[in-house]
Amino acid sequence: MQQAYIDRTAASPAYRRLVAQRRRFSFTLTALMVLMYYGFILFVALAPQLLARPLYAGATTSMGIVAGVGIIVMAIAMTGCYVLRANRTFDPSMSALLADCRQGD
């Protein structure tokens, strides 16, 4: 009985659409994060003098520190974006789909 429920859920076109949407969204966020991180690494390798510049005259904080913190903040923001989308879209859709599949029992 449990396996039939799992099979029915997995065979549902709505389930497949939901999985595809979630995968597309997570791959997009992953690609953005990878691009930001490797862009920063390339910047360090190819233009270290720009990252070594201080923020303003007499400052001890360099542009590289600001860029590094910016990458961390963007990673946190992307995580928040995924959590919001999961809570508002993916989870309710999955709950409705599971309820529909349960009715077939």
Rank of each mutant, 00 (worst) to 15 (best):
S26Q: 12
A57V: 13
L42F: 09
L46P: 10
Y37Q: 03
R24N: 03
A47M: 13
A47F: 14
F25Y: 11
I41Q: 01
V19Y: 04
I41E: 01
V66D: 08
V44P: 00
A45P: 03
S26M: 09
L32E: 05
Y38H: 05
T61K: 11
G39I: 11
L51N: 07
G64W: 07
P48L: 06
I72L: 15
F25W: 07
I72D: 08
P54C: 03
L18I: 06
V66F: 04
Q49M: 05
A59K: 00
R53A: 15
L51C: 11
G70R: 12
Y37P: 02
V34W: 02
Q21M: 04
V19H: 07
V66E: 01
V34M: 04
T61A: 12
A20E: 05
L51V: 11
G68V: 00
V34T: 03
L32F: 08
T61Q: 03
Q21L: 10
A47K: 13
L46M: 15
F27H: 11
R53D: 06
A31C: 06
P54M: 13
R23L: 13
F25A: 05
I65M: 03
M36Q: 02
Q49A: 03
I65R: 06
A47S: 13
L51Y: 08
A57M: 02
V69S: 10
M36C: 04
L18Q: 03
M63A: 06
V69W: 14
T28R: 00
M63Y: 14
Q49Y: 10
L18Y: 09
I72V: 14
R23Y: 09
M36R: 06
S62Q: 06
L42E: 08
I41R: 06
R22C: 09
L29W: 00
A45W: 07
A31T: 08
G58K: 08
P48Y: 07
P48Q: 04
T61G: 10
S26N: 00
L18T: 01
Y37G: 03
A20Y: 05
F43K: 02
G64Y: 06
R24G: 01
Y37A: 15
G64R: 01
I65W: 11
A57K: 02
L35E: 05
V19I: 15
F40V: 11
Y56A: 11
G68F: 12
G70I: 09
P54D: 09
L35S: 12
S62H: 08
L29Y: 04
G58I: 02
S62K: 14
G64M: 13
Y56K: 04
V66R: 12
T60D: 15
P48A: 01
V44W: 03
L51E: 07
F27T: 00
G68I: 15
R17D: 14
A31L: 03
R22D: 03
A45R: 14
V34C: 00
L18E: 08
A31R: 00
Y37F: 15
V66C: 14
T28C: 02
I72R: 09
M33F: 00
L46S: 09
V66L: 12
M33A: 11
L29T: 01
I71N: 01
A57Y: 10
F25E: 10
T28D: 00
Y56W: 15
